[in-house]
Protein backbone atom coordinates (compact mmCIF):
# COMPACT_ATOMS: atom_id res chain seq x y z
CA UNK A 1 0.00 0.00 0.00
CA UNK A 2 1.03 3.56 -0.52
CA UNK A 3 2.59 5.37 2.41
CA UNK A 4 2.40 9.04 2.95
CA UNK A 5 5.69 10.73 2.27
CA UNK A 6 7.57 11.83 5.34
CA UNK A 7 6.20 15.08 6.65
CA UNK A 8 8.76 17.81 6.41
CA UNK A 9 11.67 15.69 5.22
CA UNK A 10 14.88 17.26 6.37
CA UNK A 11 13.63 17.69 9.90
CA UNK A 12 15.66 16.14 12.66
CA UNK A 13 14.12 12.93 13.87
CA UNK A 14 13.28 14.60 17.18
CA UNK A 15 11.35 17.35 15.41
CA UNK A 16 9.62 14.84 13.15
CA UNK A 17 8.59 12.75 16.14
CA UNK A 18 7.29 15.80 17.96
CA UNK A 19 5.15 16.69 14.93
CA UNK A 20 3.80 13.17 14.56
CA UNK A 21 2.80 12.73 18.17
CA UNK A 22 -0.87 13.66 18.47
CA UNK A 23 -0.43 15.39 21.84
CA UNK A 24 2.64 17.35 23.01
CA UNK A 25 5.50 14.86 23.21
CA UNK A 26 7.11 16.54 26.23
CA UNK A 27 10.36 14.83 25.23
CA UNK A 28 12.27 17.88 26.43
CA UNK A 29 10.95 17.11 29.93
CA UNK A 30 12.41 13.59 30.18
CA UNK A 31 14.57 13.28 33.30
CA UNK A 32 15.99 9.90 32.27
CA UNK A 33 14.66 8.18 35.37
CA UNK A 34 14.04 4.88 33.60
CA UNK A 35 10.51 4.46 34.89
CA UNK A 36 9.61 3.40 31.34
CA UNK A 37 12.44 0.92 30.88
CA UNK A 38 11.74 -0.51 34.31
CA UNK A 39 8.06 -0.96 33.58
CA UNK A 40 8.33 -2.37 30.06
CA UNK A 41 7.23 -6.01 29.87
CA UNK A 42 9.30 -6.65 26.76
CA UNK A 43 12.39 -4.59 27.65
CA UNK A 44 14.52 -7.72 27.72
CA UNK A 45 14.15 -8.08 23.96
CA UNK A 46 14.77 -4.42 23.16
CA UNK A 47 18.06 -3.09 21.86
CA UNK A 48 17.42 0.14 23.73
CA UNK A 49 15.07 0.90 26.58
CA UNK A 50 12.56 3.67 25.82
CA UNK A 51 14.61 5.97 28.07
CA UNK A 52 17.71 5.28 25.98
CA UNK A 53 15.72 5.95 22.81
CA UNK A 54 14.79 9.38 24.18
CA UNK A 55 18.41 10.13 25.05
CA UNK A 56 19.48 9.12 21.54
CA UNK A 57 16.71 11.23 20.02
CA UNK A 58 17.80 14.28 21.97
CA UNK A 59 21.42 13.64 21.14
CA UNK A 60 20.55 13.67 17.44
CA UNK A 61 21.63 10.07 16.92
CA UNK A 62 18.79 9.55 14.49
CA UNK A 63 20.11 6.47 12.71
CA UNK A 64 20.47 4.55 15.96
CA UNK A 65 16.85 5.33 16.78
CA UNK A 66 15.48 4.55 13.34
CA UNK A 67 17.23 1.20 13.20
CA UNK A 68 16.56 0.20 16.78
CA UNK A 69 14.14 -2.68 17.25
CA UNK A 70 12.68 -0.95 20.30
CA UNK A 71 9.49 0.55 18.88
CA UNK A 72 8.80 -2.72 17.05
CA UNK A 73 9.14 -4.75 20.24
CA UNK A 74 6.83 -2.34 22.05
CA UNK A 75 3.66 -4.29 22.88
CA UNK A 76 1.68 -1.08 23.27
CA UNK A 77 0.62 -1.82 26.83
CA UNK A 78 0.89 1.80 28.03
CA UNK A 79 2.52 0.71 31.28
CA UNK A 80 5.39 3.18 30.80
CA UNK A 81 3.02 5.97 29.85
CA UNK A 82 0.90 5.83 32.99
CA UNK A 83 3.95 5.60 35.22
CA UNK A 84 6.07 8.32 33.65
CA UNK A 85 6.60 10.98 36.32
CA UNK A 86 6.84 13.59 33.58
CA UNK A 87 3.69 12.46 31.78
CA UNK A 88 5.38 11.81 28.46
CA UNK A 89 3.06 9.99 26.01
CA UNK A 90 5.62 7.25 25.42
CA UNK A 91 3.41 4.78 23.55
CA UNK A 92 2.36 7.46 21.08
CA UNK A 93 5.99 8.40 20.57
CA UNK A 94 6.78 4.78 19.73
CA UNK A 95 4.04 4.87 17.08
CA UNK A 96 5.45 8.11 15.71
CA UNK A 97 8.93 6.58 15.42
CA UNK A 98 7.49 3.57 13.60
CA UNK A 99 5.59 5.80 11.16
CA UNK A 100 8.73 7.74 10.35
CA UNK A 101 10.94 4.66 10.11
CA UNK A 102 8.55 3.17 7.57
CA UNK A 103 8.50 6.39 5.60
CA UNK A 104 12.24 6.73 5.64
CA UNK A 105 12.68 3.11 4.64
CA UNK A 106 14.48 2.25 7.86
CA UNK A 107 11.81 0.10 9.41
CA UNK A 108 12.34 -3.36 10.76
CA UNK A 109 11.14 -5.28 7.75
CA UNK A 110 9.32 -8.14 9.39
CA UNK A 111 7.35 -6.23 11.96
CA UNK A 112 6.56 -3.42 9.56
CA UNK A 113 5.40 -5.96 7.03
CA UNK A 114 2.90 -7.39 9.48
CA UNK A 115 1.48 -3.97 10.13
CA UNK A 116 1.38 -3.27 6.42
CA UNK A 117 -0.35 -6.56 5.65
CA UNK A 118 -2.89 -5.81 8.34
CA UNK A 119 -3.49 -2.34 6.96
CA UNK A 120 -3.92 -3.68 3.42
CA UNK A 121 -6.42 -6.21 4.66
CA UNK A 122 -8.41 -3.51 6.40
CA UNK A 123 -8.41 -1.40 3.29
CA UNK A 124 -9.63 -4.26 1.11
CA UNK A 125 -12.44 -5.37 3.36
CA UNK A 126 -12.94 -2.75 6.05
CA UNK A 127 -12.45 -5.52 8.57
CA UNK A 128 -9.53 -7.58 9.68
CA UNK A 129 -9.54 -11.26 8.84
CA UNK A 130 -7.39 -13.42 11.05
CA UNK A 131 -7.00 -16.42 8.78
CA UNK A 132 -6.23 -14.34 5.73
CA UNK A 133 -3.84 -12.18 7.66
CA UNK A 134 -1.96 -15.11 9.11
CA UNK A 135 -1.67 -17.04 5.87
CA UNK A 136 -0.76 -14.06 3.78
CA UNK A 137 1.80 -12.81 6.30
CA UNK A 138 3.36 -16.21 6.94
CA UNK A 139 3.39 -17.23 3.28
CA UNK A 140 5.21 -14.05 2.46
CA UNK A 141 7.59 -13.86 5.40
CA UNK A 142 7.73 -17.18 7.27
CA UNK A 143 6.54 -19.95 4.99
CA UNK A 144 8.29 -22.48 7.23
CA UNK A 145 6.42 -21.33 10.32
CA UNK A 146 3.04 -21.87 8.70
CA UNK A 147 2.73 -25.65 9.19
CA UNK A 148 3.50 -25.18 12.88
CA UNK A 149 0.49 -22.92 13.16
CA UNK A 150 -1.80 -25.55 11.64
CA UNK A 151 -2.90 -27.30 14.88
CA UNK A 152 -3.89 -23.99 16.39
CA UNK A 153 -5.77 -23.07 13.25
CA UNK A 154 -7.52 -26.42 13.14
CA UNK A 155 -8.57 -26.08 16.77
CA UNK A 156 -9.96 -22.66 16.07
CA UNK A 157 -11.73 -23.79 12.91
CA UNK A 158 -13.23 -26.79 14.66
CA UNK A 159 -14.78 -24.48 17.24
CA UNK A 160 -15.86 -22.08 14.52
CA UNK A 161 -13.67 -19.44 16.06
CA UNK A 162 -12.02 -18.59 12.76
CA UNK A 163 -13.77 -17.44 9.62
CA UNK A 164 -12.84 -19.04 6.34
CA UNK A 165 -13.96 -16.03 4.36
CA UNK A 166 -13.46 -12.37 5.07
CA UNK A 167 -16.39 -10.07 5.69
CA UNK A 168 -16.54 -6.93 3.62
CA UNK A 169 -18.30 -3.81 4.83
CA UNK A 170 -20.95 -2.26 2.62
CA UNK A 171 -19.38 1.11 2.07
CA UNK A 172 -15.83 -0.01 1.46
CA UNK A 173 -15.49 2.59 -1.28
CA UNK A 174 -16.37 5.36 1.12
CA UNK A 175 -13.80 4.05 3.56
CA UNK A 176 -11.12 4.03 0.86
CA UNK A 177 -11.99 7.60 -0.07
CA UNK A 178 -11.58 8.61 3.54
CA UNK A 179 -8.24 6.88 3.89
CA UNK A 180 -7.00 8.32 0.62
CA UNK A 181 -7.97 11.83 1.71
CA UNK A 182 -6.29 11.23 5.08
CA UNK A 183 -3.07 10.16 3.41
CA UNK A 184 -3.06 13.29 1.29
CA UNK A 185 -3.61 15.36 4.41
CA UNK A 186 -0.73 13.66 6.15
CA UNK A 187 1.54 14.27 3.17
CA UNK A 188 0.54 17.91 2.95
CA UNK A 189 1.63 18.89 6.44
Amino acid sequence: MAHSPTPGDGLSLLEAVERKTPIPSRLEMCIQCGSCGGSCPSAADMEHTPRAIFALLRAGMDESVLHSNTPWICVSCYQCMVRCPQEIPITDIMYAIKNIAIQRGAAHKEEAAFSATFAEMVESYGRSFELGLATRYYLKHHPLRLPGMAPLGMGMLARRRMDLKPTRIKDVDGLRDILQAAREMEAAQ
Binding site: H3, S4, K20, P22, S76, Y95, A96, K98, N99, I102, A112, F114, S115, A116, F118, A119, V122, G126, R127, S128, I169, K170, D171, L175, I178, L179, A181, A182, R183, M185, E186
Partner: peptide, 25 residues
Amino acid sequence: EDWNCCGATEYLSVDTVPAYALISR
Protein backbone atom coordinates in the same frame (compact mmCIF):
# COMPACT_ATOMS: atom_id res chain seq x y z
CA GLU B 1 -24.16 -0.71 11.23
CA ASP B 2 -21.38 -1.00 8.69
CA TRP B 3 -18.64 -0.42 11.24
CA ASN B 4 -15.05 -0.97 10.14
CA CYS B 5 -11.96 -2.35 11.85
CA CYS B 6 -10.42 -0.02 14.44
CA GLY B 7 -6.97 -0.73 13.03
CA ALA B 8 -5.76 -2.50 16.17
CA THR B 9 -2.21 -1.50 16.99
CA GLU B 10 -1.13 -2.01 13.40
CA TYR B 11 -2.64 0.90 11.59
CA LEU B 12 -1.23 3.40 14.09
CA SER B 13 2.20 1.97 13.42
CA VAL B 14 1.91 2.71 9.74
CA ASP B 15 0.46 6.19 9.57
CA THR B 16 -1.05 8.78 11.84
CA VAL B 17 -3.86 10.75 10.15
CA PRO B 18 -5.20 7.72 8.22
CA ALA B 19 -5.20 5.67 11.43
CA TYR B 20 -7.27 8.27 13.26
CA ALA B 21 -9.54 8.67 10.23
CA LEU B 22 -10.08 4.91 10.14
CA ILE B 23 -11.10 4.86 13.80
CA SER B 24 -13.15 8.03 13.55
CA ARG B 25 -15.29 6.70 10.71
